[in-house]
Amino acid sequence: MYPAKFDYYRASSVQEAIQLLQEHEDAKLLAGGHSLIPAMKLRLAQPPALIDIGRIAELRGVTQDNGSIKVGALTVHADVAASDVLQSQCPLLAEAASNVGDRQVRHKGTIGGNLAHADPASDLPAAVLALGGTIHLLGPGGSRQVAAADFFLDLLATDLHEDEVLTAIEVPAISGKTGTAYLKFEHPASGYALCGAAAVVSLNDDGTCAGASLCFNGVTATPHNASAVAAALVGKTLDDATIDQAVNANLSIADPMGDMYASGPYRVEVAKTYAKRALKAARDRA
């Protein structure tokens, strides 16, 4: 409950934040603080310096551009969930964000902080992965963009370099007959996902599946992309039996995480159930 001492710097621009990161070894960025401060209170994290980027206005907000939507890293979960643009054009991200933590947490926790922390049981990574999102990073050498599929490296580990700032998440706007769904089976204590299933389903005019995507939080150390299930759906008419069969035949998850509440193998079983439900909900919304 009592964080250790640190030096505190408040950055007024991303450039200043990058400069401060270079000047202070092992410094941590502070955005909403909802992943970092809990760890500091338990002294599981004792960073020597914090660089507060929470007031950099340019990092906040949702903007549209040419079929894609950019969400500033400092946009809080509540704003992601309530964004008109996202609700109409990328409802999966809004739905996943509405599942993060509780209403107080959603008022302060940020999308950038969440993804940079890369908690495997959080709600956003699978959604961003299922959407084929892109992570925007800015460092001393300039900006770079990393596909979500390449961003999550391991448990709590990402491709974000120590001197970089995650500035935005870019996701495609959905078009045509596309439906999405995020369904979570939550841990009763933490509220984190034991299994969160993010599904995207696009239909052709004849009702057959034009494309699909299915990803999971909570089951593996990084969000799991069940591409074989998605592939098995393409071209098919998605009645319930077809979806069930595609999941049963094609969902295989290696190295699932387990804990005392829910073992790895059990989580895989839940993933099957939630995959079916999420795909069906996405289909119904398409």
């Binding site: 409950m1 505190y8 408040r10 502070l30 603080g33 909802h34 401060i37 809990p38 209170k41 507060d52 929470g54 509540a78 209403r103 107080q104 947490v105 008022h107 302060k108």
Partner: peptide, 16 residues
């Protein structure tokens, strides 16, 4: 309430 929104004050630094 912080700027009108419910917030867990144990998960904010006073400087924030």
């Amino acid at each position: 309430l912080m700027d009108g929104q419910a917030v867990k004050s144990c998960t904010q630094l006073a400087v924030q």
